[in-house]
Design a protein around this nucleic acid. Structure first.
Length: 142
DNA sequence: GCCAACGTTGGC
DNA sequence: GCCAACGTTGGC
């Protein structure tokens, strides 16, 4: 099992919208960056990820699960771009802000901190555990 | 709203 | 294949 982070502007696709999609989830389409696409190609069904709101919130707000491996992005004819499907698993009772990630020495090495522009990022198992703890997720919900 | 950082494009 | 120019992103 690998862990990831999906970054989105709430104005284009918000956690609320993701929650409303429920079990059927949603394509993580629109990615036009090779690094981000390569991360999606590396994903397996059942991988967990965080949902991050950029701009106003600047916080990790939800937990998601990969439910479909990389397939062509339906929003473009360009064969280079692929995406996975994800579904919402749980909201974080306490959103973990970018500021908190920067300040916590266990999270200071996150890609979110070193390269905030990358839209799909890998998260280490340790970072995953720390964020779940800070976010107030119980072990049964993760 | 600004600007730094980064990725992509295109001319050479 | 290099690199300057440009566009976009996202934190501040």
């Amino acid at each position: 099992m690998q862990y990831w982070l999906f970054k989105s502007e709430p104005s284009s696709w918000s956690w609320q919208q993701q929650l409303e999609r429920g079990e059927q989830g949603e394509e993580w389409d629109g990615v036009r960056n090779y690094q981000a696409r390569n991360h999606m190609r590396a994903m397996a069904i059942g991988d967990r990820g965080f949902f991050y709101h950029s701009q106003k919130d600047k916080a990790i707000v939800g937990l998601v699960e990969v439910i479909a491996t990389a397939h062509p992005d339906s929003t473009t004819e360009d064969e280079r771009w692929e995406c996975v499907d994800i579904r919402a698993l749980a909201s974080l009772p306490t959103p973990v802000t970018l500021e908190v990630c920067k300040l916590d020495p266990r999270l200071a090495g996150m890609v979110l901190v070193s390269n905030p522009r990358l839209s799909v990022q890998p998260v280490t198992a340790e970072e995953y555990t720390v964020i779940c703890e800070l976010g107030g997720l119980t072990s049964q919900s993760t």
